[in-house]
Design a protein around this nucleic acid. Structure first.
Lengths: 193, 193
DNA sequence: GTCATTCTACCTTCTGGTAGGTAGTTTGTC
DNA sequence: GACAAACTACCTACCAGAAGGTAGAATGAC
């Protein structure tokens, strides 16, 4: 139980890449089988159904993201630094093409055709990301470091939306640099100076 | 040629709704056939392949959007009004669930698995929308009505990204109101007063 | 009669999923 | 330590249904 096979992880990693590329209906067990070098049926041993696979994958993604946010928080960086780090993290992922889109953002776009279980995981990610951003903005505003025009919550939603939209634009233009253009414009607006 | 059958249009409208819900791989000819009340094979008479159908659909969408932008432009409204109108248009579409997502924004998210022809149409829409927003922002800045921190182009990209991200959040939360929250925060920031 | 439209009937390939089997490892019991 | 039972990870060989698509025959308007 503690010793999970590496195949299990390989399947999850592969599925993640495939979802990032084309969403829930954009890949099949056959696609994974080919990449991992295993037979289709063997995937069912690890993940009985496609819903199981994607739900596990998103749950894990969500956990990683939450761990990342908690970790940033403990490093005691100031609010503006945290926002910069968050945007910088995605900028790096997009520039080196290692993860050119947030799994949950991509799945959210197809929410109406997603299985209920996956839908709930995706929604939970949006809520936890929004909550974290809200707390960062709230702290920044209280310290006088960040310039907010609305409530921390509303500004957090706007921040998140802009980052997701920037991922979309980078993909649409086929130009990773556009992500940096949009996010740096976003960050600038929050700095007081 | 001038007298296009209404079935043709019904198929396009139906496909549009289905794409808005789940993207390129989220619907099939069978789905359309059921809604339109026609046999699968009959759709092939109007659109030989799925690529033809989606390409036509996106091209038409693009034309409509460009006509809408040109029309707004001719009404001579001031820049801030134009931005408000644009955001308000989408807010209405999302609130009444008539078109809760931009077809091109949704397709852009799955660009890596899209047929080349569709990909080009989607990209073209992003470019024309960005160009229009740039011109509006540029004019607003020149007139002193809008407060820009970066170049009109960069701000236009940020504006577009935020609107697309707001669509995504509204869908993720299952709450149409979040679109208005994000976009009104966005518009406020551009107003001078 | 011609032409567009729609139909039935069919094809191939892909889809997620199942059944049943095999080789190798762990585990529990004596 | 020996040995059976159970478990893990994978396999081959299927299946039913859905996918996009084709061929050719009816229908019906001009």
């Amino acid at each position: 139980m503690t010793n999970l096979s590496s195949t299990y992880d390989e399947i999850l990693d592969c599925a993640r890449s495939l979802i990032i590329a084309g969403g829930y209906n954009g890949f099949s067990y056959a696609d994974i089988a080919e990449v991992v070098g295993i037979r289709k049926a063997s995937i069912h041993h690890h993940f009985p159904s496609k819903v199981d696979l994607v739900q596990t994958l998103v749950a894990r993604y969500r956990k990683e993201a939450e761990a990342g946010m908690a970790n940033l928080e403990h490093q005691g960086s100031d609010p503006l630094e945290l926002l910069r780090f968050y945007a910088g993290y995605w900028e790096a992922c997009i520039m080196d093409d290692s993860a050119p889109f947030c799994v949950c953002a991509l799945l959210a776009s197809q929410l109406p055709v997603l299985p209920e279980e996956v839908c709930l995981e995706v929604r939970a990610h949006f809520r936890s990301l929004s909550a974290w951003l809200t707390s960062v903005l709230e702290r920044g505003a209280r310290q006088g470091q960040l310039q907010l025009m609305g409530t921390p919550h509303d500004e957090a939603e706007a921040f998140m939306a802009t980052v997701h939209g920037a991922m979309l634009s980078a993909r649409a233009y086929g130009d990773p640099k556009i992500f940096g253009v949009v996010t740096s414009s976003l960050l600038e607006r929050f700095s007081s100076r």
